Computed example of a mutant assay.
Amino acid sequence: MQVIQPAQLDTWLQQAATEAPGVVPVVLDVREPWEMQTASVKAEGFELVAMPMRSVPARYLELERDRPIACLCHHGARSAQVAHFLMQNGFTAVVNVHGGIHAWSQQRDPSVPVY
């Protein structure tokens, strides 16, 4: 599974645009609703989709298999599990955002609260 740091998201978005022109990448936030209310990212250059980890097995078919997806959670463990699950189920362009929203706050957007 490919892993990126939040600081590498722009490069990943550019790569996704090259490999899938006209397709808007997804940042799949697999945290719980209360976590998203506490801290969330701004969708800039991607679509933000909220799908708590526990709901992914029932809902993953809502996602397009060939659409670039970057999985995000608090620190990166849950999103790694979801990324692995998606890849096992035929998704072809999945990465895990290592360090999660905590690292996002440190590397990309300090206005995102740390919790």
Rank of each mutant, 00 (worst) to 15 (best):
E62F: 03
Q88H: 12
Q81T: 07
I101P: 01
G22N: 08
L48M: 08
G90Q: 14
V82E: 01
P113W: 01
V82P: 02
Q14W: 00
F91K: 03
I101M: 01
Q14T: 13
S55E: 14
S79N: 03
V3P: 00
R54G: 14
T38F: 12
V24P: 07
A50I: 04
Q37S: 14
E47V: 03
Q15C: 11
H74Q: 11
P33G: 06
A83R: 07
L86F: 07
R67P: 08
V23R: 07
V49L: 06
M1D: 07
D10Q: 15
L9W: 02
K42P: 04
G90R: 14
L72N: 05
A80F: 07
M1I: 12
G76P: 07
P68M: 00
A58D: 15
H102C: 01
L72E: 05
M51W: 01
C73L: 01
V23W: 00
A17V: 06
Q81R: 13
V41I: 15
D29F: 03
F91A: 06
Q81W: 00
I101D: 02
E44A: 10
H102Y: 00
G22R: 03
A103L: 03
V97W: 02
V30Y: 01
A17D: 07
D10A: 15
V95M: 15
Q107H: 10
Q107L: 13
D109V: 13
Q8M: 15
F85S: 10
H74L: 08
V41M: 09
A80S: 15
N89P: 14
V94S: 02
Q81G: 15
A50E: 13
T38V: 12
G22Y: 04
D66I: 03
Q37I: 05
V97R: 03
R67A: 09
P68Q: 01
R108E: 09
P33F: 05
W34T: 11
V94C: 08
E62V: 03
V27N: 05
